[in-house]
Amino acid sequence: MLTAEGITKSFMGIHALSGVSMQVHAGEILGVIGPNGAGKTTLFNVLTGLYAPDAGNIFFEGRDITNLRPYRRVGLGLARTFQNLEIFRDMSVLENVMVGGHVRLSCGFWQSLLVTPGKRAEERLLRSQALELLALLGLADRASAPAVSLSYGDQRRIEIARALASHPAMLFLDEPAAGMNPRETELLAGLIAQLRKDLQLTVVIIEHDMNLIMNVCDRIVVMSEGRVLTAGAPHEIRLDARVLEAYLGEEIL
């Protein structure tokens, strides 16, 4: 579904990614793990379009999207959340999710200016779908609250609802469990599995929480020093000596 070939990206001479090739298959939940500085977030940023790679190509459903701007990728069905919470601070919870639905609306300048019936119908639909998404994520009763008033874990959920509002085919989650307690993480794992099932999503997750990764992922890509070290099913990764070595013998698995 998504294929990256030979992605290289450096920042001021530092190779963040050197020749990363990977694939995301339709319908899977793929985990991307690796020690700090392995290039996971840079890979996410290249795949979602924040940076253009220095070399290499990215194909999404057969189409070359290497140089496509982020907003165009969202239109094609790629959506993401952020490692550092990036909710819109001046907006309510519902407004945040409605912004996420931007690409699904077609009203242009004149329809908005003249408040045409089509525009109004579109807005009503967006609002009701945003409320449904909030219900799905257990935030329905907080819809009109200022987004910043919610807890850390709930703000992560707003971000997921907001990303889902664009009706993506593929969802990138950048450390979704960061700052969550074990109970919240467990709920998150259940949620991710449920979303994949209900919305036919393909999910890519960067995460340090190995419980989440091992529980929810079908396949794992291990990165180290800007390269893909190995990829495989969780039980294979768990036993791979190279993976343990990459983590410098940290007992993480």
Partner: peptide
Amino acid sequence: ALKQSRIGRAWAAIRDNDVTAMFMGIN
């Protein structure tokens, strides 16, 4: 009318954080 539309929301998103706004599919 503009403020209450998709356009107004896009502006508000850009005002808040234009990088995040790009990832909402906003040009």
